[in-house]
Design a protein around this nucleic acid. Sequence first.
DNA 1: GCCGTTTTCGGCCCGACTGTTTTCAGTCG
Length: 577
Amino acid sequence: MPSSINLKVSDVLYKMSLLGEIEGINPFKVRAYKKASEVIKMLERDISLLSDDEILKINGIGNNMLKHIKDIIRDGTFPEYEKLLRKYPISLLDLFTIPGLGAKRIKILYEKLSIDSKEKLYKAAKNGDLSLIEGFGEKIAKNIIDSIERGITQQKRFLISEAMESAKGLVDYIRSLGYSRVEYAGSLRRGKETIGDIDILVEGNENLSEDIVKYPLIEKVIAKGSTKVSIILKNSIQCDIRIVKPESFGAALCYFTGSKEHNIALRELALKNGFVLNEYGLFKKGKVDKAIAGRSEEEIYKALNLQYIPPELRENQGEIELAMKGRIPKLIELKDIKGDIHCHTNMTDGASSIYEIVEYLSSRYEWFFIGDHSIPLHFVKGLDFRKYLDSRNELLKLREKFRKVDFDRSIELEVLKDGSFAFGEEELGKIALVIAAAHTSAKMKKEELTQRIIKALSNPFCDVFAHLSQRLLFQREELDLDYDLVFQKAKDFNSVFEVNGQPDRLDLKSENIRKVKSLGLKVILSSDAHSLEQFSYIEYALKNARRAGVQKEDVLNTYSYRELNEFFQENRKRRMK
DNA sequence: GCCGTTTTCGGCCCGACTGTTTTCAGTCG
């Protein structure tokens, strides 16, 4: 996980890049600051603990940047940055969040009208002061007013589920117009935790733009050309639709899937090999009329002598080097998943009855476990042991009727403040699958909290540990735990961590899944469904796991029902010794 | 400011769209 010092360094370098842009320094310097900011943000290890040599090994960081970084770690700033801060107010950077405003225009606004905040900008636009400046016409002023009034900024991000729903709606609409090849790209396709905007690719012709802007859920059309339409939907998600020809579809899909860093690395590799790569195809240098590849992504990677790289791995985090050596892992796929372990019925905070869930899942999976919260979570009617047993017996009776599928009752068992479980040992032995989780007392000291979790993991009956970090995206920070210590101890207990697919949880997050995998531990994916529709959320857990490079054999959902139960029984026995 | 199977200097991804113009700069992804 990025340490707070990494985020600080990354933030200062990013601000430096923006101020540098305003100042008008060499654009490649700007890019260097941005790139350094980016890689440090993604860095897993605490940069202040790395040696100079180790830092210099990071791609995008040279001697000058190293010096800046060390200054920032020590002083929180560095001389070149200070110099620009004396010249421009930091509040100027807020203006970058307004679409259509970049460094050049921001500088002019500041120098000519002393505008250094959204408030001043808004007033000036309303008063018509902007028209005093050459190059600022009516439309720009209107756009500024519009954006500020509606709070449309470029930094807003969305849960993947919200973005996916919007994307599917639009894709269906375009298909209904008679276009058959329509795909979403961008961070949605890469399965990122949160999504900034939606990218959609359509094989079609220029007539399509006219039809697209008739989509009823559009709030605003930003741009409309023959190959690109940009819109903002009513739920304020921006959506870029690209219209491409069949011979370019693969190249465009690759290009618009990104990430940007992956693309740049691919293009640089292409150049080294005497090719030019763009969204239309892969071309021999100087012969841009005839593409070597472009119809499919596979074609392009192959022509670059690379193994195919799944979208989830395209972050320029070493995947290109792996692909050169043919060592891209075969990632787990949806079809490998045989069952789910974690959901909620209407006995606690779910929407459906046990029967409805069995009926729904019996046609989808080979096996499944139906869970529920335990005491002492009274606010969601958590089950006591008696209720667990009774409802389990009710469930098991349904085996008669649903013979083709295996199922049993799990429980999301509360980890108490001292790390013990809400049920005693004798009771625990009678529970088919224990999913330990903490929902309360998060405000403990880091050391105490860490010990609490470790104690829970050491319990012989801790079959699975659910949503470890307790984060809720956009709402709640992750627990302040010593994660490395927790994972280290987890190795001793052969613990299994859940990868929760609720779009606001996605917990473990992919960085932590990677760590757990590297220790040789298994994970288990879950939907944590609270309604029938939410069982599909396991796909978000899957995406998260794929981004961590997880393979079929790392994931217990790929086991048969028998193998799975044997695994857990083995684990319990071993821990009791 | 970074980087090197063409390089320690001279490159650095590149095309689409908008707005304000009259041939293009700025922004964006």
